[in-house]
Amino acid sequence: MKAIESKVLDAIRANPLASQQSLADELGLSRESVAGHIMRLTRKGEILGKGYILPAGQTLVVLGGANVDLTGTSADTFRPGDSNPGGVKQGAGGVGRNIAENLARLGNEVVMVTLVGDDSRGRYLIEQAQEAGIQTQAMVRHSEHATSTYLALNNDQGELVGAIADMAIIEQLTPEWLAERMSLLQSAQTLLVEANLPEATLTWLGEQSLNAPLVADAVSATKAVRLKPLLHRLDLLKVNRSEALTLIDEPASSDLSDEQLILRLLACGVTSVLLSLGERGVRYGDSTQQIELPVPHCDMLSDTGAGDALLAGFVHARHHIESVDTQLQFALLCAAMTLEAPQAVNTRLSATAVLQRLTETTQSSALAESES
């Protein structure tokens, strides 16, 4: 930042409601010069727009989808093509929204950037986000499209057997719409995106000079391909095996090892990879190391949202924990707590709760080793 821009920013911090003319008089500049500096500071994310709103220093910005989740769980063995007795519940969901809520419950300052419909479900999502601690000023109501809805069917073990996603509204998260919110994106400490976003939008993001490191969730093998134009810009990519194979143009039958998969993704320009291994746990890799850890013991009710909690937990831990091994343990425990909840996000999730379980897990492991 240039010295004169720093002076303008300091003057705004001292008096956020000052007019451009009063700032000019104070600094000995012309009003036109001050206006130009303010415009450049806004583009850089140092100012968030009207009223010279200044960004908080530790804000995580999540850009993605927000859905109303309708989840039906069979009371007995699921029978395809038949009516299955069970229960149906409504909750707030969407990959981006789930990540945002997990981050907020872990104690982070989080802004969610998304579109919802100007309908009852849209109002429900905004209210739910506010209750969870998510900042909702960038959750915008769209007058022409309905709120996204995700309909999931689970078997009696809580495992997904099929789903339908009505997410047309997310296609309205266009480059043009986001360009108007560039100051918010630039203010982020970390910017998290997901592959439900339109490919044109992800490509556009890859072309921007963003201040924050980019983190991405591949979502599914079908959607993962949308991230290809963004790979060279990603600080962290979370994928499962099928998504990773799609991104490197390998068939699903490929016999590449997990280690080789990560190396191939790193060769595409990704700085670090979080490879979800499902029941086997998770494998992390960067240019210096690869670490694999198993899933901690938990009593699973539903696997919906576990991957979102894994990524949120790891992003949180990277800001607060130095050891990568411990970061992964923290993230896995976030996922385990989500597996134990009937909804996509465990409302009991908190950094304190996770750290307590981490301590208990460490003590149990140490005791088992001493007895062996």
Results as ranks from 00 to 15, higher is better:
residue 315 V to S: 00
residue 285 G to F: 14
residue 108 N to W: 01
residue 145 H to F: 15
residue 30 S to H: 00
residue 21 Q to G: 01
residue 12 I to N: 02
residue 333 L to H: 11
residue 280 R to I: 11
residue 80 P to F: 15
residue 105 R to H: 07
residue 45 G to D: 03
residue 19 S to A: 09
residue 169 I to K: 00
residue 259 E to G: 13
residue 305 G to S: 05
residue 215 V to W: 03
residue 252 A to Q: 15
residue 363 Q to E: 10
residue 253 S to R: 15
residue 151 L to E: 04
residue 124 Y to G: 06
residue 85 P to N: 10
residue 71 T to I: 12
residue 103 L to Y: 02
residue 81 G to Q: 07
residue 36 G to Q: 00
residue 184 L to V: 08
residue 328 L to H: 06
residue 296 P to K: 12
residue 214 L to P: 04
residue 23 L to D: 00
residue 159 E to A: 14
residue 84 N to E: 14
residue 32 E to M: 04
residue 253 S to D: 14
residue 50 K to V: 14
residue 59 T to C: 06
residue 163 A to E: 05
residue 44 K to V: 08
residue 153 L to P: 01
residue 21 Q to I: 00
residue 118 D to C: 12
residue 98 N to I: 01
residue 313 G to F: 05
residue 218 A to G: 02
residue 345 V to S: 08
residue 156 D to Q: 14
residue 372 S to D: 04
residue 341 A to I: 10
residue 109 E to N: 05
residue 62 V to Y: 01
residue 237 L to K: 07
residue 252 A to R: 15
residue 301 L to T: 09
residue 284 Y to Q: 06
residue 197 L to W: 08
residue 360 E to W: 10
residue 346 N to T: 04
residue 307 G to M: 05
residue 78 F to P: 02
residue 364 S to T: 14
residue 90 Q to H: 10
residue 47 I to N: 05
residue 180 E to D: 11
residue 319 H to F: 11
residue 126 I to T: 13
residue 127 E to N: 15
residue 48 L to V: 05
residue 321 I to V: 14
residue 11 A to R: 01
residue 244 A to I: 08
residue 164 I to Q: 03
residue 238 K to T: 02
residue 365 S to E: 15
residue 258 D to C: 03
